[in-house]
Design a protein around this nucleic acid. Structure first.
Lengths: 338, 338
DNA sequence: CTGAAAGCGCTTACAG
DNA sequence: CTGAAAGCGCTTACAG
């Protein structure tokens, strides 16, 4: 059985359609694509012929000719977070509306595979590339630029992608609300565990009301031990953190650590998530407060911007969408009295 | 700025590489692809030239010529479950190992978009198509067959895809373990809420030890109201269900319903999930028991089977992989005493 | 080992 | 409105 090996089985070509309809290939093409005017009856005849021979256009041939693929590439270095699903959905939506198609790729955290996937999209000549939190793929992105293929970063511009057009979310109002709410509950030291580049001493910031916010940054691949360490530092700092806002990515580990320390939320510590998901927040007991981001809508907007760009408009300026808000839930409560 | 509109910006072609290296296009091609032998120094010269002019092969041209794309398509009707991420990861892994690339597509539950995406993969001439729980896409799948493109179903064969080669998981041992465990806890009526085609009266089955298992099937898109209804029927049946095993997809709603009924697990009802996810089970309090499936490994195997098929082997027979097991956790406990 | 030539399946000026 | 012809960028028998 080598049916699929030599490709000789492939379906009908436009030429066969044209022959079946008794017209030239040019006319068949025009009839099917409805570009310039073709006589009504010929259009019908060609359509019928196409149907009858089971014609399926070959996009490789078309895009070789037109040098457009109508494809947009989306490359993930790692696809492990429920929010990624929403992003794909939103981008798919915006892409579809604009008559494009979205091709998604994931590398399971393997940097080599990620680069390989990007190179493949480049060679496939996607019309545009979308990247979420690009990091360590500067070389590949530069190749797209050299090939004349626009690249749009989403969420954040990573290393080597600093000067890409970027669409992200204005998080300030949501975080301001979160801090204010926590302060009202009596918290004076709030720890943020966010994704960043490796474990370093937390950075501190004092809000006007005296509340201290300390940020620990962890690599997305942080081990349980590293998360433990970051939490320990935050608890032992002066003043010790009584409220935690953790990147969704770390939440399984954080919950695990808190359990092993016999800490309950909100009794012993208030807990909230940066990025929410119906697979997480509402299933937890008590339900988890969160910085909510409408990631799907971000995707829709990003896709539209890319398509406008492809349509000849100026590259989109740095855009911060107001798609974030604080959602308070019972995982956040009064500061514990010692 | 119409830089990206007419595609005139595109990079160097093989011809330019050949010219820069002072060889023919044929030699340049052979040197770069390492097929037949080419003189050592020429290979070097061509490589250097390719590098220097920034050559990036055009896969549209290549696959037009070879009638192979080395792409595998993966089409989701809906991509809303954490398990889907694992499937993508596994398929990506197996695909990559075999020298292919995985192109993923999602339709956000929109049937028209799903069909459109499939047609696009068809026109893009992916070498093979992978579908998870195909349903209502029989026509599109037939088109792939007509085009000589193999299609492999995963997880389950849906309507119109009954005679596709199928790779799924042998669930019997896991369910047997689950039933046995629940029976040991004293449960005599176990309700299964699984994904199926619409709400119908539950089907009942009696195990050798007298335990009754009643299955309610719900559409994947079931509304909260429908889930409530299914749960109510199960609770009011004779005997009433005291243990629930629910498809991961319904878990957010189920937990919500139980809360609104003031039912706690495992105190009032034992709860387990069909398909687990670290985004769900371990975050819940108490942690959720589950029928675990190694979806990523399923993906790896499915990709390998597809690639073997493409390599000329016989289409894979119906395969049931032993990738499932029961994971007991504290959400399952003794039957409540009334 | 190397090169000239054909051809994959389309679209699109260019004539008519 | 329609057709003959060129050409998109590759690979691969076929000669040499």
């Amino acid at each position: 059985m080598t049916t699929f090996v030599d490709g000789a089985t492939g379906g009908a070509t436009l030429r066969e359609v044209a022959e079946a309809a008794g017209v030239s290939v040019s006319t068949a093409s025009r009839a099917l694509n409805g570009q310039r005017r073709v006589r009504r009856d010929l259009v019908e005849r060609v359509r019928a012929a196409a149907m009858q021979v089971g014609y399926q256009p070959n996009l490789a041939a078309r895009s070789l000719r037109t040098s457009r693929t109508m494809d947009l590439g989306l490359a993930f270095g790692r696809l492990d977070t429920p929010a990624a699903l929403d992003l794909i959905d939103g981008l798919g939506q915006g892409t579809h509306e604009g008559g494009y198609h979205l091709l998604v790729t994931s590398a399971r955290g393997d940097a080599t595979r990620h680069r390989d996937a990007l190179r493949h999209l480049l060679h496939r000549r996607v019309d545009g590339l979308l990247v979420s939190r690009p990091d360590g793929i500067g070389t590949e992105i530069a190749d797209f630029g050299r090939q004349g293929i626009p690249v749009l970063a989403m969420i954040s511009a990573g290393e080597g992608a600093e000067d890409l057009p970027l669409v992200n979310v204005d998080l300030r109002p949501a975080f301001a609300d979160a801090f204010q709410s926590l302060a009202r509950h009596g918290h004076r030291a709030i720890a943020l565990l966010t994704e960043g580049y490796g474990l370093r001493p937390p950075r501190s910031r004092r809000l006007p009301d005296g509340t201290v916010v300390r940020v620990s940054r962890l690599a997305g691949t942080a081990s349980a031990a590293e998360v433990v360490e970051a939490l320990r530092v935050q608890r032992e700092a002066d003043p010790p953190a009584t409220a935690l806002i953790c990147d969704q990515r770390f939440m399984p580990t954080v919950v695990d650590v808190l359990r092993s320390w016999d800490l309950e939320f909100p009794r012993d510590v208030s807990l909230a998530s940066y990025l929410d998901s119906r697979w997480m927040d509402e299933l937890m007991t008590p339900p988890l407060a969160a910085i909510h981001i409408d990631v799907a809508e971000l995707g829709v907007v990003a896709a539209r911007m890319m398509i406008a760009w492809l349509g000849g408009e100026e590259p989109p300026p740095l855009t911060r969408l107001p798609l974030s808000r604080w959602i308070e839930r019972p995982s956040v409560g009064a500061v514990p009295t010692l």
